Amino acid sequence: MTDSVVRPAGKRERLSDAAAKVFHEQGVEKTTIADIARAAQVPVGNVYYYFKTKDQLVQAAIGAHARTGQEIITALEQVDGPAERLRALVRGWVEQRELAARFGCPSGTLATELDKRADGLERELADVMRGLLDWIEAQFAALGRTDSRELAVALLAAYQGISLLTNTFRDPAMMAAEGARLERWIDSLVPAT
């Protein structure tokens, strides 16, 4: 491994990440530009230098979701074997159960909110979620499953569903139990050697 210099995130990236976080916690409609500036620790006047409208901040938040998703996939690619990568994905979701209990899935809740707006941003977020779905499908395909797309949809749907229920009932234990079930399900799909 090589040494690298880690630079602090620039204002634009900090604002994008803050927008994703605050939109997740408060919703797009309730969030003000001042809320995002405060979360990013940037003077509110500076926000307008990078983003002229709230919709541009929503688009930036979608970009932050894309970066986070890619970082997760990159980390999962370091895990040996497709079944273990899928189990690691599930464990990562379960590790976020307290956050899900309070606010739901970051991408899922944003997707639900954007779907009501009909301004095209929902399609951008769908592309981000499709990236994860495609990655999951590739893992099932690597297991030799000819039904890899259906299995990928089932896994992602199970996560989105349990995120909603965990949030609705404010019960992180629900996600932990579903995570354990999903890991057993993944194990049942691994071909015997």
Rank of each mutant, 00 (worst) to 15 (best):
L99W: 10
G144S: 10
I136P: 01
G161A: 10
I72H: 09
T168S: 13
L89D: 02
G179E: 02
A61L: 02
D134C: 01
I33E: 00
F23D: 01
M174P: 03
L133I: 02
E124Q: 06
E13N: 08
W185M: 03
W185Q: 06
V22C: 05
A126N: 11
L156W: 02
A100R: 00
A138R: 15
F23C: 00
A19F: 12
T112F: 08
L164E: 04
L110C: 07
G131D: 13
E183D: 08
A66C: 01
T68D: 14
L189W: 02
L110M: 15
Y159C: 12
E25S: 10
A138N: 09
K116E: 15
L86E: 01
R181T: 06
A20G: 03
T53A: 06
A118C: 13
G131H: 04
V153E: 08
P82K: 08
A142F: 10
Y50D: 06
R14Y: 11
G63W: 04
P191T: 12
V94K: 00
G144A: 11
P172T: 11
R149S: 11
L57I: 10
L125P: 03
M129E: 06
T31F: 00
Q59E: 14
G92F: 04
A138E: 14
E77N: 14
E137I: 09
G108W: 01
F169E: 06
T53L: 04
E183H: 10
L86W: 01
D55A: 15
G108D: 04
A158M: 09
D35E: 07
L182A: 12
I72R: 09
A100V: 00
G69E: 04
G131K: 06
I36N: 07
D127P: 00
A34Y: 02
T32W: 03
S107I: 04
Q139V: 05
V28E: 00
V128H: 08
L151Y: 05
T68L: 14
E183M: 14
Q26H: 11
V28C: 03
R117F: 08
W185D: 03
A101K: 03
V42W: 08
A138Q: 15
A180L: 14
F103Y: 15
A18D: 07
L155R: 05
S148Q: 10
L125T: 03
E95T: 03
K54E: 04
L57H: 03
R87Q: 12
T109C: 01
L155P: 07
R117T: 14
E122C: 04
